[in-house]
């Protein structure tokens, strides 16, 4: 028997669906649920209860992680509205954005070749600012204009930025070791 997970993630935490989210409230609700369902509460229970508890706690973790991160939260909201973000298949981007991507990528390569951790950290900071800008745009598109195709494109851009961020981290790690 599996628990009835018909609820969407917003309903699970009793939050209004939307990109803008009360993070403190989400944290609190997540903890309230985990304190009821976490396997540590059922360590001395029978196998059926243990299994149920693991399924519930897994579901709560998945829901929490999805809503906590802006990228996955936007993707999830779009899914709720029947919009596929097509991050794997749709790589069409505005030319200006692509140009900037190339510049950043060159910047990472140059900094790496020059053994320049400070330059990489500077790039990471610029990337964080770019990310905040895209997140603000998502809020307007999803909660305000309800322009889902434009929001889907913004999600794809955010995904690009995230990948770049990972590359910078890997480059910093490589230089540190």
């Amino acid at each position: 028997m599996t628990p009835d997970f018909h609820k969407n993630y917003f309903e699970l935490f009793g939050l209004p669906p939307g990109f803008r989210i009360d993070m403190a409230l989400l944290d609190g609700k997540y903890r309230d649920i985990q304190s009821q369902v976490h396997p540590d509460r059922f360590a001395h229970a029978d196998e059926a209860q243990k299994r149920l508890s693991m399924q519930w706690a897994t579901f709560a973790n998945e829901a929490y992680q999805t809503l906590k991160q802006p990228l996955s939260r936007a993707r999830y909201l779009l899914q709720m509205h029947g919009v596929d973000t097509a991050e794997e298949s749709n790589t069409a981007m505005p030319p200006a954005f692509l140009m900037q991507q190339m510049e950043w990528r060159e910047g990472i390569m140059e900094a790496r070749a020059a053994d320049d951790i400070a330059a990489l950290e500077h790039l990471a900071a610029k990337l964080r600012a770019e990310r905040r800008g895209l997140e603000e745009r998502l809020e307007k598109l999803l909660d305000g204009a309800k322009d889902y195709p434009a929001a889907a494109e913004t999600v794809r851009m955010l995904k690009f930025i995230e990948k770049l961020g990972e590359e910078i981290n890997l480059a910093i790690e490589a230089l540190e070791s």
């Binding site: 009793g14 309230d32 369902v37 149920l52 519930w56």
Partner: peptide, 24 residues
């Protein structure tokens, strides 16, 4: 067991602020 778990989750949520749930 499944019913009890559902109930405890509902209680955990509603134990806080009912108004937020309704808003949702």
């Amino acid at each position: 067991a499944a019913r009890r778990m559902d109930q405890s989750v509902r209680r955990a949520l509603s134990g806080h602020k009912l108004s937020e749930l309704e808003m949702g």
